[in-house]
């Protein structure tokens, strides 16, 4: 029973990280109908930014020393990861995707694959970063809390709390703010939104910014939780988060959250059962979803006008 509970917690933790990535996928898809293959790499960039910032700040403020203000340090690193992820996403959008907006969708998809490859190889080619693994520092001291027979690390709480906070903020933003309303308008009908005086490109830029920033945060959380970072670390979580977004219904924000938690929990249990199943479960879920309900759990069916 206690391992069951333990796995559930691990699943929720993993799901929180997936959710932060999946939201970017789903928002970008909702607005420009692009599967941004490079999205997983913004996640990686966030992790590296956090890593770099932690050591830079460490030199300045002596972080890691007892008595340092961990919360401030953590928030600074978090902000850095957000900025880096957001900046990378906005840049990719401006340089590679914007010129292809009116071209066939597959062109931007292939470009996205190119951008993804470029970021990964550029990072591993850079002498300062290199292709090998790096250990991720404990930005926040790790403590274990006992709940009954199960033990919970405070990282679980941090991951879930950060993800939940950001998701609530995003939901409020999309529901009530002017930008959020504009985003929804653009995702419904670009042409009509343009006629209503919405600057489409600005809204697309904001979407990439938010998506990239969330992915950056996910990178930091992933670094904390699974303390190993490398330039290709974004590929698999990116793919799985994407599948989670498809599972929930791509373009649908609550769907991405739901799908991510299902994915995280399913993967954790599958991995516990057998590592081969763990590796394949994401694709198995994908294939089942696409064959049975391609629009995803919360997605709506769209039909071509004939």
């Amino acid at each position: 029973m206690s391992t069951f509970f333990q796995q559930l917690l691990n699943g929720i933790q993993l799901g929180s990280i997936y959710a932060l990535i999946a939201l970017g996928y789903t928002m970008v898809y909702g607005i420009v109908r692009l599967i941004n293959f490079a999205h997983g790499d913004f996640f990686m960039i966030g992790a590296y930014a956090a890593y770099g910032l932690y050591y830079a700040l460490g030199r300045l403020f002596g972080a890691g020393n007892p008595g340092a203000n961990y919360l401030v340090l953590f928030l600074l690193v978090l902000g850095g990861a957000m900025l880096a992820g957001g900046f990378a996403a906005v840049t990719a959008n401006r340089v590679a995707y914007k010129p292809l907006r009116d071209k066939p969708r597959l062109s931007s998809l292939i470009t996205a694959i190119g951008v993804s490859m470029f970021i990964e190889y550029f990072f591993s080619a850079l002498p300062a970063i290199g292709p090998s693994f790096r250990g991720f520092p404990e930005v926040f001291p790790k403590t274990i809390i006992k709940i009954g027979t199960a033990s919970v690390s405070n990282y679980v709480i941090i991951d879930v709390a950060v993800a939940a906070t950001l998701m609530v903020v995003l939901t409020l933003l999309v529901k009530f703010s002017k930008v959020g309303k504009a985003m929804r308008a653009v995702s419904q009908d670009k042409e009509a939104a343009k006629l209503m005086g919405i600057n489409i490109e600005t809204i697309i830029g904001v979407t990439f910014l938010i998506g990239g920033a969330f992915a950056g945060v996910a990178g930091l959380l992933s670094g904390l939780t699974y303390p190993r970072i490398f330039p290709y670390m974004g590929i698999l979580p990116g793919l799985k988060a994407f599948i989670a977004a498809v599972l929930g219904g791509i373009g649908n924000i609550p769907g991405a959250m739901l799908g991510s938690y299902i994915m995280g929990i399913a993967e954790t249990y599958a991995n516990a059962a057998n590592s081969l199943i763990g590796e394949g479960i994401a694709f198995a879920i994908l294939i089942v979803v696409l064959l049975i309900r391609p629009q995803g759990i919360l997605g709506e069916k769209t039909a071509d006008k004939i």
């Binding site: 590679a96 010129p99 292809l100 062109s107 931007s108 292939i110 470009t111 694959i113 190119g114 951008v115 993804s116 490859m117 470029f118 190889y121 550029f122 591993s124 080619a125 002498p127 292709p131």
Partner: peptide
Amino acid sequence: HVKIGDEWRMVVYSLLLIIIML
């Protein structure tokens, strides 16, 4: 006088792909 790894080949390749598409 610098060491250039195989990764740069892939950097060139991926840039090529982006440029072709753009």
